[in-house]
């Protein structure tokens, strides 16, 4: 599974980064790499079985239990 993830990320880096490096888009490269690192770490955490807390549940908690804005 981890091998699979790493292969996919290597492919993405190969496809997208080559164009960026060729055109010398610095800012795009920085943004791309930061999203890349976030995505890689999230998917590795998920594959290790770490229970990630879903952001949608945070907003559900906020709306339902703190503001009491829900129908039930």
């Amino acid at each position: 599974m981890i091998l699979f993830i790493l292969t996919i990320f290597a492919l993405i880096a190969l496809v997208d980064m080559r164009g960026l490096l060729k055109k010398k888009y610095r800012k795009e490269l920085i943004v791309f790499s930061s999203i890349f690192i976030i995505a890689l770490s999230l998917s590795l955490l998920l594959s290790f079985g770490v229970a990630l807390y879903s952001p949608i549940k945070v907003s559900q908690y906020f709306l339902k239990d703190i503001l009491h804005l829900s129908y039930k």
Binding site: I8, F9, I12, V15, D16, M17, G19, L20, Y25, K27, E28, V31, F32, I35, F36, I38, A39, L40, L42, S43, L46, L52, S54, P55
Partner: peptide, 20 residues
């Protein structure tokens, strides 16, 4: 982020969508 092109970030964003 004021990028000049959006195409390179498409696949990585997709990974975040899958994880989410």
């Amino acid at each position: 982020f004021k990028l000049r092109t959006y195409r390179p970030i498409v696949y990585v964003t997709g990974i975040i969508i899958i994880v989410y």
